[in-house]
Design a protein around this nucleic acid. Structure first.
Lengths: 319, 319
DNA sequence: GCCATCTGGGACAGAAACTGACCTACATGG
DNA sequence: CCATGTAGGTCAGTTTCTGTCCCAGATGGC
């Protein structure tokens, strides 16, 4: 309850609250003398956690940004919030950090108290899958796969091949790779006696056997290169769009996310949007549809086509 | 570098990796004797972190789910992934855990090394704002507000009133409240000398003054009740939809998220969807539009109208 | 300008802890 | 049956930690 290491953890936890803590209050909370608190603060600083202190009356301690990430001490609700956010990010593949998202999710899920697990899934109800293209990947499956890869544990799963033929697999997983909006598992197939890359969306019911396998050498520079070499289904074509939006630039900026690309005002009531990133047609189309204002497409022509198809489908649905 | 508390933290960090660690390997990594590792494991268990150990050869230690959340030790990329996920969740208001998301985000942002901050915002580029209704709230603003509230720090910001009149405010923030798909800041306005609830989407450039204010008594049961009493703009009306989807139930399930509501197969090629949750028309419309299959709306009639408007807008845009 | 209130840190003595080096018991898989 | 792993007892020496004295310096309010 009150030995030194646990007290340090508690102190870190208190300091992570975004407020100032006078040393006296910390001392009271942790049931030690103020002098000990000062020493503990010193210790934390030596460990690399930057504790800023403001002098004078009204002063106090607080944890600020440093060079390394301190251990995050979360309460129940915060833990659930993080799990939900990561599930969404991993499942919908936020570009650039997919693999880190899944790793972090695996960490959180591994230690998430069971009473909180069901809350994660129920809350997830409110989320909408973003990726418009192709089947979605179950984030829970992803965490199973990443855990098995990290632990080099043998894995069983069902696999539906490109032809649609189903098979049972027993593999030694190496790594999870994200490429071209898809997840791949690079693993050594024990039945086929060779390396394979599996599309995760075609994997069903992955189940870790609990047996550790000794690492093998992959006949490629790394897992990503292996997938790149094997992959037959190169990702969907991507486009960059140019559209005129009939809404003031200021209003648009807030609704396009953080880096909407290049938004140039034309006049008081309209602006020109040049999405600097490349994205799939479906993504671009939905993004525009959700904007809620009138607009005109200049580039690419395929986007106009996509929008016509969308409009027709929606119109048919409305009857 | 190698005193006891820091070693315990390192040990926790190692055990959070989803794999098995034999005691000897841990001893080597932490530069202590295996006996000390066993003692450390004991200590962690006493602190409430459940370390599972498998006996026999091929055995080892690993951290499993317990009753409390252990401190999360993250590497750079994982930290960024969590921040991105939370930003998305907080900004788009995943129902039910909005306030916890913002609290967690404030914690992460507070200690996130500065070199990682810009990565969070650049990665966010790929995200799409979900909430279709009303202006979006900047997650960064939210973290500033929640930090100031927790620390009882005086706050300055610009405010655009319901009439559109701009004003400068100096307030003592009490709490951030989420109600009816909107964020409100409950605070004591130092110029008006009274309690107010501010809509966060109308707040610009919040800036903490660094001055702590002594807490005042709110003339209401709690902040949520205060907002509920003051709020003139009751949230948007919500609806529950019933639609027929012209796609196999199995294919739809994967693309609707985790709790899509009630999906009942009609035949091999179509199914009936009853969204059990209430949502805004805009949300429902976009959700259907993104589904990518043919569908027919049965309930509510307002949704059909919304879809007709959407279709018309998109059709005009496609030219 | 004074005072209250905070951080920062030195010195010291007694108490508490931590560690490594033994040892044995027990579980597991080949 | 053996190798390899966890589990845990004991012991002695050392280290560390704590509380209680101090006093210096910074800051904001009166």
């Amino acid at each position: 309850m009150s030995d030194t290491p646990s007290r340090l953890l508690n102190l870190l936890s208190l300091l992570q609250t975004p407020r100032e803590w006078p040393g006296s209050e910390l001392a009271e909370r942790l049931r030690v003398s103020p002098r000990t608190i000062r020493r503990d603060i010193d210790r934390l600083r030596e460990l690399g956690y930057p504790v800023r202190s403001s002098m004078g009356a009204e002063g106090g301690y607080r944890l600020v940004a440093g060079t390394a990430m301190p251990p995050l001490l979360l309460d129940d609700e915060e833990a659930v919030a993080i799990a939900v956010g990561l599930r969404a990010a991993a499942g919908h593949a936020v570009a650039g950090i997919e693999e880190a998202s899944v790793r972090a999710l695996a960490k959180v899920i591994q230690v998430l108290p069971s009473r909180l697990r069901h809350r994660v899934s129920t809350v997830n109800a409110a989320t909408m899958p973003l990726a418009g293209d192709g089947p979605t990947v179950d984030p829970d499956d992803l965490t199973v796969l990443v855990a098995a890869s990290a632990g080099a544990e043998r894995l069983r799963f069902g696999y539906r091949d490109g032809d649609g033929t189903e098979s049972k697999r027993l593999v030694e997983p190496l790594r999870l790779v994200h490429a071209g909006r898809r997840w791949y598992l690079v693993a050594y197939d024990n039945h086929r006696d060779d390396w394979r890359s599996f599309r995760v969306d075609r994997i069903t019911d992955p189940f870790p056997t609990g047996v550790r396998a000794s690492p093998r050498e992959l006949p490629a520079e790394d897992a990503a290169a292996f997938v790149a070499g094997r992959r037959s289904d190169w990702g969907l074509p991507t486009f960059r769009m140019v559209v005129t939006l009939h809404a003031p630039a200021s209003r648009v900026a807030g609704r396009l996310g953080d880096a909407p690309g290049d938004v140039r005002p034309i006049d008081e009531h309209s602006c020109l949007l040049d999405s600097s990133r490349d994205d799939s047609l479906e993504w671009l189309a939905h993004r525009m549809a959700m904007l809620g204002c009138e607009f005109e497409v200049h580039e690419p022509p395929q986007l106009a086509e996509q929008l016509r198809a969308l409009s027709a489908r929606v119109s048919r649905a409305a009857g």
